[in-house]
Amino acid sequence: MLPLVESVFYWSDLFGTAVFAFSGVLVAGRLRMDGFGVIVLAAVTAIGGGTIRDLIIGAEQVFWVANTVYLWVILGTALLGLYLVHLPRRLPWYMLPLADAFGLAIFTVIGADKALSHGTSGMVAVVMGVITGVAGGMIRDVLAREVPMVLQREIYATACILGGMLYTGSLALGLPVLLATGLGMLGTFVLRVAAIRWHLSLPAFSLTR
């Protein structure tokens, strides 16, 4: 991969890690957890999906074991989050969803790219992109005793599937990596933001008429 793309991936990944960790902080705060609980929910949300991905594809080392900067980002975000949630002035409501959508987009592409680099097929790479993007949030919701958002009607995993398909498909067609990355991230981000803006959702399955 080109050095420029690697650099963009890395710093965007750290940003996504911080955003996902902050969402874990918010859930922990809503449930009135102690400091340890806050850090645990922040950590599983931020690195849970990538950890599962690395274990499945047989990576030599799980990414946060090889680079402990991710752990410091999570710890810093958790501590900062404990302070920010008590401020009288809050961020505009749309800031966190937009940041989360961006984090989802970069996690999806990074997950798919890492799977491809370990010799998986395009289909498996798409699945790994989805796992990287949503599994951490699923673990967080389970620990919070809630039905994971991704298993409800939210267009979340669907956005990951679209982004993963755009990324792997673009590479299969011979497009430059930078362009494939942009298309994959843009597809995920736009679909997720559109779902938030216009309250789009998937049809619910029900056994009742």
Rank of each mutant, 00 (worst) to 15 (best):
5 V>P: 05
11 W>D: 06
11 W>F: 15
17 T>F: 07
20 F>N: 06
24 G>L: 00
30 R>S: 10
35 G>M: 02
41 L>H: 03
47 I>L: 07
48 G>H: 07
49 G>N: 09
51 T>F: 01
54 D>L: 04
54 D>V: 00
55 L>K: 05
60 E>Y: 08
70 Y>F: 14
72 W>K: 09
74 I>A: 06
75 L>H: 00
79 L>F: 02
81 G>V: 02
83 Y>M: 11
84 L>R: 09
84 L>F: 12
88 P>F: 12
89 R>V: 15
94 Y>W: 14
95 M>T: 15
96 L>T: 07
99 A>L: 15
99 A>P: 03
103 G>L: 04
110 I>G: 05
114 K>S: 12
118 H>A: 06
119 G>A: 13
119 G>T: 09
119 G>C: 11
120 T>R: 04
122 G>K: 09
129 G>H: 00
133 G>L: 00
137 G>F: 03
139 I>R: 09
142 V>F: 07
143 L>H: 04
144 A>G: 09
152 Q>R: 15
156 Y>G: 04
157 A>Q: 00
161 I>F: 13
165 M>H: 03
167 Y>L: 05
167 Y>E: 12
173 L>H: 13
174 G>I: 11
179 L>D: 03
185 M>D: 08
189 F>T: 05
190 V>Y: 02
193 V>S: 08
205 F>M: 10
